[in-house]
Write a protein that binds this DNA or RNA. Structure first.
Lengths: 187, 187
DNA sequence: CCTTATTTATCTATCAGTAGATAGACAAAT
DNA sequence: ATTTGTCTATCTACTGATAGATAAATAAGG
């Protein structure tokens, strides 16, 4: 694994646990076994590291989503894939979605980082809207499902209890189900 | 207004905008026109300020909720009061719920602060569960509604667009409505 | 093949700025 | 006389960032 990847891995762990401001070049350097100046060599500014990290995270999430829904026709199964992706965020990293973390801090974050985070949510919403059939009225259901998953992660994180996420996710799934039962579905 | 209140007001604004770590005694001191040592006089440790702030915030929110639902019988109107409370958080402070912010940062926060935040969510969930009738099966709907509101605030904040929250809130309201239509209701 | 030049990746050392926190002086109010 | 509230001054620790040295790898030219 390249040093760049090692740095990004360490940065993701720290950033998802404690946030952008609580993550320092020295911490990351210690994690991967180099000096902070070496981290600056790969990512001149902290902003560069932030942008690269969100970009990699976003690509990874949508790649995983595409992989999990390949050949899947059932729309409810597709929603469940999105739910599982978020559930995985909690059990794997024992923490919230990177983009939820950065959204909370978004005031005071470099503009390029904020833009990347916003793009992640835009893509997530677009994906859900398409599953829901694309009718304008379904927009609010896509938004509520995504918000419930992100909010569920947040409450689970502070409660140190994944059951909070599971309940929020089941509620979101129910909202999706009533939506999908009602609409024709063009997939 | 007492200096203590002034400090708490400034701290709330800064903390909700940028988070616990990005808020400093010097910033708050400058906001209220004193020196940082004077802030330490009222709140010896940063942790003390954090705990007091969340406690005051929590009391204020539930007082507002009680006030808005006084004499209200319709359960859907009660849910709407909870929604409005969260909507207000965005338009007033142009930012997310204080407890959502602190949840994100919860790893690395003083334990007393985390406990106070957790308590806020526990109370919010208890309040929603009671509106939903208290059946164990309704637990997930209470959780989904709260999570959707918190997550909606988060996405609206990073997008700088309250419409994201409004859509999530309407989706949450729909989930609540289907729930309340189905259950008997003992209020 | 050998030598020279360049690039890559790391180091040490340091900078100015800011963090939370404390000690002690001072004035005003009780 | 004591308490309350604020000040100045200072401490240690840590932040992001930069400069300059160094070693190893790679490329170029003869």
């Amino acid at each position: 694994m390249s040093m760049r990847e090692k740095i990004l891995n360490a940065a993701e762990t720290r950033m998802r646990a404690a946030g952008y401001n609580a993550m320092s070049f020295r911490d990351i350097a210690a994690d991967v076994g180099v000096k902070s100046a070496s981290v600056h060599y790969h990512f001149p500014q902290k902003e560069d590291l932030g942008v690269a990290l969100v970009a990699r995270y976003s690509e990874g999430q949508f790649a995983a989503l595409a992989n999990a829904t390949e050949g899947v026709e059932d729309r409810m199964a597709m929603v469940q894939a999105m739910i599982d992706l978020h559930a995985n965020a909690f059990v794997e990293g024992k923490s919230i979605c990177l983009c939820a973390m950065l959204s909370a801090e978004s005031v005071g974050l470099p503009a390029r980082v904020t833009a990347e985070v916003k793009s992640f949510f835009d893509q997530s919403l677009a994906w859900l809207r398409e599953v829901f059939g694309g009718e304008p009225d379904e927009e609010m259901r896509a938004e509520a499902v995504l918000a419930a998953l992100q909010g569920g992660l947040l409450i689970a994180a502070v409660s140190r209890d994944a059951a909070h996420f599971d309940r929020a996710a089941r509620g979101a799934a129910e909202l999706a189900r009533t939506t999908l039962d009602r609409t024709p579905g063009h997939l």
